[in-house]
């Protein structure tokens, strides 16, 4: 039986990891809500942002967090362009399948370009405060993990406020819920859908920067993220943001706790087990999600 301090530390680390998962899953849920698109390239953009953060630190000598000044608007624009220029031009009849293939192609493209530009070497940011940690009831938590969680939490809160309190948020939610009715009341749903995509990709920029702080990155890393993230959105019920957040925290916590008896590699299987169990027994997901029934 592991000691209480170890358990406590695992719980804290699991929740911190879950926060990052929640932010990224929120992006995936946005895309799915807007266009019923499963965006495979989400985690590839995540790794791209992590590489850009590493690049700013390594080559320009600036704090990696500052790279967000560039990457967030850049990714927002990329998201808008991707939705307007590529995804919205696919045939509506086969949109779900073809969009998966298209975003898959983009993911492979990004992986290839990253490998070409930065080689396959593993990269890691060495920060002045990288090894600092805080003691909390016998648990030691790295400061960078707290920063990453803080970033994710702030971004999620900002996303929540944007969706609930602003006029744009109303329009976006209306577009997701009832596109025809939204058009009737004068919402330019196509433009809003594009902005929604940009917003989703912007979460990948923030998540990638947070990830780069304490993770070793390499071009094919995104496959290790897309699996868990897709499991999270299915368990949460496709299209439900609170569902995705709850599933993210829960699965992140379980992964962290299972690492004690099983080791890091086997602990990852919890995501896939949860994915299969959900689809076999409760295909609409465990946390509601009105859209999930049919997809």
């Amino acid at each position: 039986m592991p000691s209480g301090a170890l358990l406590f530390q695992s719980v804290i680390l699991g929740l911190l990891l879950g926060g990052l998962y929640a932010l990224l899953a929120a992006g995936l849920t946005l895309y799915f809500g807007i266009m019923r698109v499963v965006m495979i390239a989400h985690s590839a953009f995540l790794i791209l942002a992590a590489y850009l953060a590493w690049f700013t630190h390594e080559r320009l000598g600036i704090d990696p967090l500052l790279s967000m000044v560039v990457t967030v608007p850049l990714f927002f624009a990329a998201g808008v362009l991707m939705q307007r220029g590529l995804l919205s031009r696919l045939r509506p009849m086969t949109l779900t399948m073809m969009s998966v293939l298209l975003t898959f192609a983009i993911a492979v493209l990004i992986e290839g370009l990253l490998g070409y530009a930065f080689t396959g070497t593993q990269r890691r940011i060495q920060l002045g405060y990288g090894s600092a940690s805080i003691g909390l009831f016998g648990a030691r938590i790295a400061v960078v993990k707290l920063i990453a969680f803080g970033l994710a939490a702030v971004a999620l809160l900002a996303l929540y406020l944007l969706m609930k309190k602003t006029k744009f948020g109303w329009a976006l939610r209306a577009t997701i819920q009832q596109p025809d009715a939204a058009r009737l009341v004068g919402i330019d749903t196509e433009k809003i859908a594009g902005y929604g995509f940009g917003l989703g990709l912007a979460t990948a920029a923030i998540g990638g920067t947070a990830l780069s702080l304490d993770t070793t990155i390499y071009p094919s890393l995104h496959w290790h993220w897309i699996g868990p993230l897709m499991a999270i959105i299915v368990v949460g019920g496709l299209g439900s943001v609170p569902g995705a957040a709850a599933a993210a925290l829960l699965l992140g916590l379980m992964q962290s706790l299972l690492q004690i008896p099983m080791g890091t590699t086997w602990a990852q299987t919890i995501f896939y087990l949860a994915l299969f169990a959900t689809l076999a027994f409760r295909p609409q997901g465990f946390f509601g999600g009105r859209l999930a029934q049919r997809f």
Binding site: M230, L238, L275
Partner: peptide, 28 residues
């Protein structure tokens, strides 16, 4: 059975997950 009970998107998700699980299992 798990992948085909629901439509489209979930099937693709399961199919990708399958590759990732198998890689994990056969490497470890």
């Amino acid at each position: 059975f798990a992948a085909l009970r629901v439509r489209g998107a979930s099937f693709v998700i399961v199919s990708i997950a399958l590759v990732l699980i198998m890689l994990l299992v056969f490497q470890s």
